[in-house]
Each structure stands twice: as structure tokens, then as C-alpha cells.
Design a protein around this nucleic acid. Sequence first.
DNA 1: ATCGGCTCGCGCAA
DNA 2: TGCGCGAAGCCGAT
Length: 520
Amino acid sequence: MTWPRREGARIGALVSNAPSIASTPSIRIRTANARSIDPRGDFVLYWMIASRRARHSFALDRAIEHARALGKPLLVLEPLRVGYPFASDRFHRFVLQGMADNAARFAETGVLYHPYVEPEPSAGKGLLAELAARAAVVVTDDYPAFFLPRMVKSAAARLPVLLEQVDSIGLLPMGASDRVFTTAYSFRFFLQKNLKEHLAHRPNPDPLKGLDIPSLAALPKGVAKRWPRASEALLSGDPAALAALPIDHSVPVSHIQGGAAAGEARLREFLKSGLPLYATDRNDPDSDAASGLSPYLHFGHISAHEVFSSLMKREAWRPEQISGVVNGQREGWWGASPEAEAFLDELITWRELGIVMCSHREDYRSFDSLPDWALKTLAKHEGDARPTLYTLAELETASTHDPLWNAAQRQLVTEGRMHNYLRMLWGKKVFEWSRSPREALETLITLNDKHAIDGRDPNSYSGILWVFGRYDRAWGPERPIYGKVRYMSSDNTAKKLKLKGYLARWSGPNGQSAPLNAGE
DNA sequence: ATCGGCTCGCGCAA
DNA sequence: TGCGCGAAGCCGAT
């Protein structure tokens, strides 16, 4: 293995350091430092940074287990920084809506929930340490991308007590595989052999119900004064409160409502009206078959386990229906309806393929992480003439000659999401219109990280790197710029899909190509 | 609209 | 070592 491997293997010895106290699968728990539990601590601290929810969470379950075993109360800290890359009104509003839901769910449970929003960069420095100094043990979320691994690593070194990272991300624990997969096909072989044993272990759907741990009435002295609870104005969506924060106000809030309640509502709606069409219509922008769940999955407002169990309940499915075939095929493994199998392939195979990649490789978003065949063919065509070139600003403002591409870009900038199928075309064209594939990759990551609510996610990087050949194969005939990397064109896409409504909705103010004002 | 052929490298199973 | 097959490809024939 020549690529940079993540430190701290997710399998083997490190996992077994975790105190075995109850039912959270040990394969999902990693000790982040070598400290121990301090039985004199006043409470158990759950540092909620990725799975931002109060239900269906292994991390919350684990924190409660500690609290129960120690006879201590539980304090939940959900922070939101302002200094992270691309912090904007859009992402803040989404996370704040989640905080409002969490505040409602933790209220009157005896668990003290502290949502903290930084008023200025680094204002939150010291808060975690201050709380950890009084804690018996700290539990946090294990998340394999963006700045989170670095942040947890540096916190782990400083905290005086045991810090555990708990993986609540997917149906397959990150610790269940010790390798990455080059195609969805080969990952399916692995899932078909290994996933079943993990399906039996689910997070508690409602761990706050009938909770039998001591209550915590107040934060330690001085904490509330220096790091006060997020204001009601922020939690209730007051635009003025958001405007006062030092974040990027040029990326406006989306109409897509954040939070666990909105995510669960979206799930219900999808199962009712989207899923029946999913097998046939999910790629058509004009039909409404897509799940729309990725923003909620990204911020942890909804859990993959909850999506899975709601889906399978609707299917009246039982685990015995798994066929047992190990063939890498998309359909025929679960023994569920075709539309359910199609959706499960998205939710599990494709989503977790990227999670596994990020959890094992530090370079998951770098150009050099592409497969050899792609690097080779891209290098061969690096010098090809590129007749159409656009700058980042031209792309960001949807100012190209291509109405379909502009429409997709406008949807991204306006709504904070882009139709799933069009994302691929969108990426291929940026590749074609950039001076080099490396530059195209940077452009795509920037546009997506900045505007997409579900950006900065393992899945986003899967989709973007797919444009350059990751998880794909060589395709003939060899073409200029693309080489053997799969080619796509707007004309063919327009022929293949129903786009009338989509183009009408996302065309510019005065017709096809009027540029968008991105406010920069 | 739907179909087959094009094309290639990988990873599974042996 | 050989074989089967692949996230969304294209093209031309029917």
C-alpha cells in the first residue's frame, strides 16, 4: 500500500481498549487517547460533532451506557464553529435548525443539552477542555472527512480523560473492513459476505425515553457565562442573528429545512411518493423520485439505520429474506422490491463505499488517489487542446454557453443541492472546460464544498472523483481531453432525460444563459 | 424507444 | 490464470 493510510486502525487492538460495559458494538468504538475514565468526574460528556441527533445514534447510546455504569448525569455539547472552511448562512441555518430540534428532544429528559455557536472565530477555544476537566469520560462522533479527524485528534491529546470516538455513520461499521474498494462491484461482494452480521446491531430508536440516569441541572460554574447557550434568536432562525455572525453571507440560506424533524418528514414523504417510482424514474430531473435525504445524512440529522428500518418496515421485510448470493450484482440480494433494492444500493453500496475510502485514506480527495489506469490516460491527454475554458468565477455564476450545465449550477447555488444524475454531467463538463484535470478537481471541490448542503461529505468526494475515473473503468473510444475516462455530453443527456420542467425552472431570469449573481 | 456492439482492466474464484 | 462483468458512456440500426 503506497497511499497515506489513516492513523489508528479501525480494526484490531485499538478497538478492544474500550471498556466493555454494554451493548454498543465494540467494533464501532475507537479510543482516541490513552487516558482512563475518571470516576470522580461530575458527568459524562457527549461532544456531538457529526451525528447531530438525539435518536438512532450509537454515540449517544454509548454516552448513556457510560452514564449508567458510572451513575453519573449526561451533558451533551453540540458546538458550531464559525472559522471552518466555507462556513456560511446556508450551513449555519441548517445546523441551527437541527439544534432547535435537539433542544426540544433533550428538554425535560434530565440530560443537559448545550448548543454552542461561536460568535467569532476561536471563541469556542477552551470550552471542550473546561467541560472535559469535570467529566468522567468524553464520547464523540467518528467521522472520516473534512476537518473533523484532525480536530478530534488534537483534542484527544489534550483531554485529561478517556475520549472515545463512536461510529454512527453507516450500516457497515467503518472498522469492519481493513481495505478500500476500487469499484462498487467489488464492494458489493464484501457487503454480501459481511453486512448481515452487523444488521442485528442497531442504535436505540429513542434512548431518551424512560432514561434512568441522574439529572444534570446546570453547566459548571463560569461556563455558561463564557460560552453561553445559542440564543433563541439563532435557534428560531432570526435572519438578523445570523447576519451578525462572521460567516460567508454570500451563500444564502436554502429553502430546504434542516433538523431531525424535517429529515424524518422527508423520509416519510419519500417512502410514500418517491420510492414507488425510484427504480424507473430516479434519474429524471422532472420526476420527483429522488430521496432528498443526503443533507440530513450529511449532518447526522437522520441516521442510515433509521432510513433502513423505515424502508424495510414498509417492505414488510425480514432478514431471512436475504438471498445469500455473493455475486456483486445490484439486484437480487436483499429479496426486496426492485425499487427498494435500487435505493438500498444508493444508501448502502454507494454511500458507504465513499465512507470506507475516507476512513482508510488520508488522500481521499486528492488527484493522486485516482486509479492507475485513469492517472495514465489523463497524463497522456494533459497536453490536449482545450477549446472551451472558463474561470472559477464564470462557472460559479453559471455563465457558460451550455444551458443545461448552467441550470444545474443555478440549482446548486440557489438550493444547495443538485439533481443526482446531473451532478455527473456537471462534473464532466468542468473537467472538459478546465486547463488541467487537477485544476478541474479543485474547482469542483470548491464549488461543491461551498454551495452544497451535503458537500464536505465522503459521498461528495466519491461523486467528484468519479468524474476522473474513480470507481469506474476505462471506456473506448479514446477521446481528446478525456482519454479513456468516461465521456458525457449535454446533448445526449438532454436526449435521454425529461428536462423540460427542470430547464424552465433553472434557466436564467431572461431566458437561457443570463448569468447568476453569486454576490461576490 | 430499444437494442447490440464497442471497449478495458480489475478482482473474484480457482 | 482466466473469466465475467461493470453508476449514469457513445453510436448506428431498427
